[in-house]
Design a binder for these strands. Structure first.
Lengths: 339, 339
DNA sequence: TTATTTTACCAAAACGTTTTGGAAGGGGCA
DNA sequence: TGCCCCTTCCAAAACGTTTTGGTAAAATAA
């Protein structure tokens, strides 16, 4: 593998000039620069990243730790999310470091320590933020830039990231359900410590109130963002004293499990019971019946998060620190909306 | 951020000793080692990775580039796959670098060059191998270890990775379909350049022959491993002159699209037509109807690939270079097998 | 002409580790 | 005692860059 020294020797110039030529400095003549670029190309010279990182004190990498509760998980949300992060990072010549750790576990702490304090990453992407999130405190303390998908409770002015405007979407969704005659509407949520659960449940309840429907505590069930969790929660709802006629799920995977449970209990989803999800990712167009959902552009969100983060990392002027995104209601057959 | 020098100064010993104490060398007394470890812990010292990489000439990272054709893709296979890679890597104190690039694109080439020649990774994980795969040639040339999920045609003795024993699984699956009385069985595949398409189509045809069913070219359709691709291919099959009564799909996502198309055409999947997938990942238990599929343990496969790769990277004695995995036939309602 | 600025280059230091090749001191043995 | 071998430690070199603080030559100004 040729080093910068080899290139310099070949052209009979100093390594300084090679370095500065390739980095686009003005104090190297256009002619020399072209010769350097040409020689580097033909020798197959690629700067050694470790050396560059060591000297520049930055890594040109950002990190993302998948908050996967179980080892075996297969959430298409993350496939799309990671693709977005990776693409935006690559287009800025950054690398993306990925790992997995259960939320609030010792592994998670160890990973963040290793990445942040070992100076492996210049910034971090966070999602599935928790109401009280040690990661936020830790990153703040260590002065590592980070961008979040959901704003945790104690993030005020310094918040950097993307927020989904949920309330409007939920009001629209629940209005749609109410228009179908539903008034017995349940919610299948997730761990109460998650910001997204907090937001979505709150928006759900607010929307009920706005529609003059009395919220009922026995219609709030808890899943775990997986189809299995949705399946079990739906089973409990359907075998309770007053089963709902419509169910709003915290994400698409939960809704898929819920549809399965309803079907197994003899319901025809979309006729006997209405079910809706959130995310718009999980092949939701191809479920049977197709799933009504609040679609949010996961890939775009991921790119936006990365773009924001990299601006801060590079200390560039940043226009807006918060990008707000409106979810888009997709009415499909699962809510009886249309064939 | 404290450096090794700070630790050494605090204890009044040389940085050599600190380094060697932490790395577990024998030529430092147990007492000194304990003092070093204690001091490092309390000062919050974490070795700078760039410096270590530069000196040791290795990165303690492996890379994986998601072969995503479109920017927006949401294949749960990859979520589970990446989780497996990340977990195994993390447990060996390695990091996982991830990016995305369309197969055979210029971006793909640029990424591999950057990672390999810039010495960003010690090894690479490959999947969706192509029959003639420039990545294999490139990595071989540059003498970078890599592990593959599918064996490309020109990889003989030097192959390192996991192979799925497909033929047995397909024979079992097709036997199951034949037992239901199906003889008009179609196959929805993927790009002909992919090794997995080659393998699965070949296994499909061999199994037909073994069951004394005449393979028919007009029952071979092509998708693109996505639900959309499966949907379109299925539509073409169903509107052809002799529509099939059973369809085997190259993966679960294709099967999900195919089920959707069949339903839209008025078929009841599992009664009027049988459909099967491959992977066992995609929430296949929760589709409507639940999908018959050849289940392969994606998470375990990913961990195994990483384990093999890291052994080679660390130049450890490696037992077997090839791990063979048997897919497991899961008979569910979509093939009419059971309720 | 001489003085000043601009252009184009470079030597050497620095980044924080790991590794090499010793060296000091103590104990065992003849 | 003298010799050798452990044990435990260390100074210095090396890894491949980027950055600092220049200098020499050429161009421009006075």
């Amino acid at each position: 593998m040729p080093t910068i020294r080899d290139v310099a020797r070949k052209l009979n110039i100093s390594i300084t000039t090679v370095s500065r030529a390739l980095d686009g400095y003005a104090d190297v003549s256009e002619e020399t620069r072209q010769r350097v670029i040409e020689a580097a190309r033909e020798m197959g010279y690629v700067p050694n990243r470790a050396a560059r990182q060591l000297r520049r004190r930055r890594t040109d990498s950002i990190g993302y730790i998948v908050p996967a509760a179980k080892p075996q998980f297969a959430d298409p949300f993350f496939a799309e999310f990671i693709a977005g992060l990776g693409d935006e990072a690559a287009s800025a010549n950054y690398d993306l470091l990925v790992s997995t750790a259960p939320p609030n576990s010792a592994e998670e702490q160890a990973l963040y320590r290793r990445w942040v304090q070992g100076e492996k990453v210049d910034g971090v992407i966070l999602n599935r933020t928790r109401l009280s999130d040690w990661r936020v405190d830790f990153l703040r303390e260590n002065k590592i830039p980070f961008a979040c998908l959901e704003r945790s409770l104690d993030q005020a002015a310094d918040f950097l990231g993307v927020e989904t405007e949920i309330e409007g979407g939920y009001l629209e969704l629940l209005g749609h359900l109410a228009a179908q005659g539903h008034s017995h509407i349940a919610f299948i949520g997730a761990d109460a410590g998650l910001k997204l659960q907090y937001d979505r449940l709150q928006a759900f309840q607010k929307s009920l109130t706005a529609l003059h429907i009395q919220p009922r505590p026995d219609l709030i069930a808890t899943g775990d963002l997986t189809p299995e969790g949705g399946y079990q929660a739906m089973l409990r709802l359907l075998t309770s004293e007053h089963p709902p006629s419509a169910v709003v799920c915290v994400n698409d995977l939960t809704a898929i499990g819920a549809m399965h449970a309803a079907h197994n209990q003899g319901y025809v989803v979309g006729r006997d019971i209405a079910i809706a999800g959130f995310d718009g990712v999980a092949d939701s167009a191809h479920t049977q019946p197709p799933l009504t959902t609040l679609d949010q552009p996961v890939y775009t969100i991921a790119r936006t998060l990365t773009r924001l983060l990299l601006k801060v990392v590079a200390r560039e002027e940043i226009g807006e620190r918060v990008v707000t995104i409106q979810p888009n209601l997709l009415i499909r057959a699962s809510s009886g909306g249309k064939k």
